[in-house]
Design a protein around this nucleic acid. Structure first.
Lengths: 256, 256
DNA sequence: CCATCTTTGTGCACGCGTTCACAAAGACAT
DNA sequence: ATGTCTTTGTGAACGCGTGCACAAAGATGG
């Protein structure tokens, strides 16, 4: 993963395995693309290819949701989009606050992928008084003092932390105390949270370090005289990447 | 005692599990913080708490690297920092190119966590001719036309894609053709790459969707009359989540 | 209605990762 | 040296996730 998470041994969350949940957004993205092309149905094989996973895995994943396919035909795209959206809770609107409007925070505020998935940026918050009132992505930045009020007034349950590492735990505590129960953490720190609060972290530097490890390994084997794992550029044949799963990495931004 | 240790006999990186590799950067971060506080040694229990993992897991992870601890004492911080850095390939400099200098690309260019870990931004690349020459994070943006030349001249093997989804595969193909063998992908698309090329992806929207799933589940259980997983705000008591130690707060390793 | 063909849904086996629990190793005091 | 105490390193058990392979289900055509 990439991605990483920090919590309990999974209470039977509706019976859907964590690994499956992590892949549902992937399927949803692929299905949305098909939907926009007005494709009516899709087979597990096709959809799996589009999502970059194994078709057996995809079918097993869907089997946890129920029997939404038709044998001999495949899956109804629109219906499946709806079912996955519902399962992920995307049929409702999720107000989100972003704390720490530096370069990264601003980038997140401008990121289009949120709104299109049912996430609404309820507020941008920064500790710097200079930032207050300044509009970012069309939304005026508010000072940290307003944090509790905003969260309670808007019923925010998801917070994004994009502050420097030193401020992250403090911000986290305030978010949680105010009622936030899910946190996406971009600060390079381990967050302490009470039970019942979910934390997912995205550490850019960690992802690069994992790549560096493999890069070094490749270089080492190459230098070892053995025929390199990577054939000459011209000889390589295009081929889907083995695995891009969030686990990695278990992956994920942020994963991990 | 830091220095006098016997040399490891060829740590075959082949034997290090992927899950362990993904955690090494986490340990490294915690160790760096300890190092800056001039802490000479640390026990597996303490370090595990600081990194937010189980101590048994940490010991097993380290066992794949070799026997670097001293029973009854713990691990020598400096020595371990060095060993992990070496294992991850961070003792050498990794030139990195960032393609797509929008909000996110600019944020990445400004991210301090790269330089401090041995990653050097060799170039910023954007398809927009308007951007060419404009400095971002002190580095002038170059046009996509220069991509191949830059990669070959600087021997770049790691590329970061921060373009819109539509351009990602095309950029990826050019990166790979020019010699890049590791890619960190921020675009919400599945990338096709030849064998031997590593891809890690970070998708902000996916992480939020996973949080939304758990959030919905929490809300559902609460509404189902069952005693909610999350007690009322006022009643919650601060408590380390799962396996994160009580200490937890490791002061800012890196500025962000 | 029957045969055939496609594709789903899943039982099963396997491998990886996690965790427990403890023997071995070394520090330290006497 | 001897004993005690702390902490590592790891064997073994367990659980989860993955992928194979196939039977069941339904569509389609004659």
């Amino acid at each position: 993963m990439a991605t990483g998470r920090a919590h309990r041994p999974a209470t039977r969350s509706r019976g859907i395995p964590e690994a499956t949940v992590a892949r549902l957004p992937l399927y949803l993205r692929a299905l949305t693309a098909l939907s926009e092309r007005s494709v009516p149905t899709v087979s597990s094989e096709e959809l799996a290819a589009a999502a970059g996973v194994n078709s057996a895995k995809l079918r097993k994943d869907f089997s946890y949701l129920g029997s939404y396919g038709t044998r001999g035909v495949g899956y109804d795209v629109e219906y499946l989009v709806y079912q996955i959206s519902r399962e992920l809770g995307l049929t409702q609107d999720w107000p989100v606050v972003i704390v720490g409007i530096g370069n990264l925070g601003a980038a997140l505020a401008n990121y289009g992928g949120f709104a299109s998935r049912g996430f609404r940026v309820a507020a941008l918050i920064d500790a710097d008084p200079q930032m207050a009132g300044k509009p970012v992505a069309g939304i005026p930045v508010q000072h940290t003092d307003e944090l509790e009020k905003i969260i309670q007034d808007d019923g925010v349950s998801i917070g994004v932390i994009a502050t420097p590492a030193g401020a992250a735990q403090q911000v986290c505590d305030r978010l949680v105390a105010a009622g936030v129960t899910s946190i996406l953490n971009f600060a390079p720190t381990v967050l302490n949270v009470p039970e019942g609060v979910d934390v997912r972290k995205v550490d850019l530097s960690i992802e690069l370090q994992i790549l560096a490890f493999h890069e070094q390994r490749k270089a080492g084997e190459e230098a070892a005289g053995d025929a390199g794992v990577v054939p000459p550029v011209a000889a390589r044949k295009q081929q889907p990447a083995a695995d891009q799963g969030p686990d990695g990495d278990v992956p994920a931004v942020m994963p991990a």
